[in-house]
Design a protein around this nucleic acid. Structure first.
Lengths: 258, 258
DNA sequence: CAGTGGTCTAGACCACGCT
DNA sequence: GCGTGGTCTAGACCACTGT
């Protein structure tokens, strides 16, 4: 459907040259690209043409521009590995009665080095969440919103849902008990549920305006969205929506066929 | 970090107005937006300003533009579900000696309804690929590039690597045998390898210029990238990089803890 | 053919970061 | 004050899609 663009366009040639300089490391992450006026001279093109080339690179996430300073090769964020094996590790840890959460285990940070904002409320299930739970829409849920930070840097935001009848008047429903040592797995364990399976649906899309705000990311950047269902046998005991800036994470799944 | 942009810019006001028309449904998916000259008159701005506004909407994935025709509200793409259970299904199918590939099974399209471009070559392993294989860099590989299409629509591109010593002078090394009934699992089976596990590493990033071209997607859109290792016991027998436009797919993983 | 978006030029003024 | 990127204008020619 979308019209293919000719590769011969001048701004594409300029973009290609700059792209190769960035990707080859000739312009390392964090370093300044030549200024627009320099590029006008180097390629003998008008400023608008240079700016179109730079816009292309920005759309590809290769560079970021700052008014008054210049255009930079985008600094690489440290990539956090989110392994599917963390659930099993967490479960075994909880059974042995040890501390830590999957989040801190993934991050390899100490228990004290992270903080999270939290906001709890009771709310009826929307149609989408009800379907994931396998209950009727309108069923009362505990909705918990979290923003995780390590060393003050926002890393991910998530919304978790629990059936209210499961958690009402338990310590799990009290935000003051967050962060909970041992995380979700441990919380569910304390309620008498030993999880047996997890299903994750992964999608990617552009960040919305408020996510850009809350996660401190550049505009026009993609996020990974994980919809997670936690199972005890055939019953869904928790549903969560997890949003992570795409350049900060790599998801790792091992699928056993034996 | 990135400089915030003022909301007062004229092109942002134009973009905001058009965005609300699209999101409210006043301009339904697939319908034409006003032409650039119409917008110049309506908002009393220069063409460059109108084009900046439209570039914003395109970057948000709300519209697509076609030379000679106009700018459309973007039609919603059907989402393909890529389930981790497809490997097991494929393996059982192969053992029973049946046809089909995971790609057609995911797509729920008939065997004949898809085509793929392919390009085979022999090449030494780069450092990254060698590490995924667990062999020395420079080890000779068969590199196979594919572009899958259903009904002419590009859906994903992938590059698959096999150890040359495993496949040299076998039917697998002959591009004319693609598409191979039963896909990768079946090919490996024919070489005497019954796969036992798959590891997938999932990331998302903005599409690069040549991916935009090959996949027929609007610029400024995110892609999902899957790095896949196929195992027989502890040995990696295939490595693949799979790139899919993010709005066309949802990955589905089930993690069993029992 | 007329109308559309794609590319390109040559100017202008502004807000911002640095020194 | 000077250099940077951000915004905006007013032209021009092209390639493409329609009739």
């Amino acid at each position: 459907m979308p019209t293919p663009h000719p590769q011969s366009a001048r701004y594409r040639l300029v973009a290609a040259e700059l792209r190769s300089r960035v990707m080859s490391g000739a312009i390392p992450p964090g370093a300044l690209l030549p200024s627009e006026s320099t590029l006008m001279a180097e390629f003998s093109v008008a400023r608008g043409t240079v700016r179109e080339a730079l816009a292309l690179l920005r759309a590809e996430g290769l560079t970021v521009s700052e008014k008054g300073r210049g255009t930079y090769a985008r600094p690489r964020m440290p990539v956090r590995r989110l392994g599917s094996d963390r659930y099993r590790a967490e479960l075994e840890q909880v059974r042995r009665g040890e501390l830590g959460t999957s989040f801190t285990a993934d991050q390899r940070v100490e228990w004290s080095a992270y903080t999270l904002d939290r906001e709890f409320r009771e709310a009826p299930a929307t149609e989408a969440v009800a379907e994931l739970f396998g209950v009727d829409p309108g069923t009362m849920l505990l909705e918990r919103r979290f923003v995780f930070r390590t060393h003050g840097m926002p890393q991910q935001m998530s919304t978790s849902y629990l059936l209210l009848e499961m958690v009402a008047d338990t310590p799990v429903a009290d935000p003051d008990n967050e962060p909970w040592p041992g995380g979700n797995t441990s919380q569910l364990h304390s309620l008498g549920y030993d999880i047996t399976a997890v299903r994750e649906q992964v999608r990617a899309r552009m960040a919305l305006a408020d996510e850009v705000e809350q996660l401190g990311m550049p505009g026009g950047a993609p996020v990974l969205v994980i919809t997670r269902q936690t199972y005890v046998e055939d019953r869904v005991v928790e549903v969560a929506d997890i949003t992570i800036p795409a350049d900060r994470v790599s998801l790792d799944y091992r699928i056993d066929l034996t």
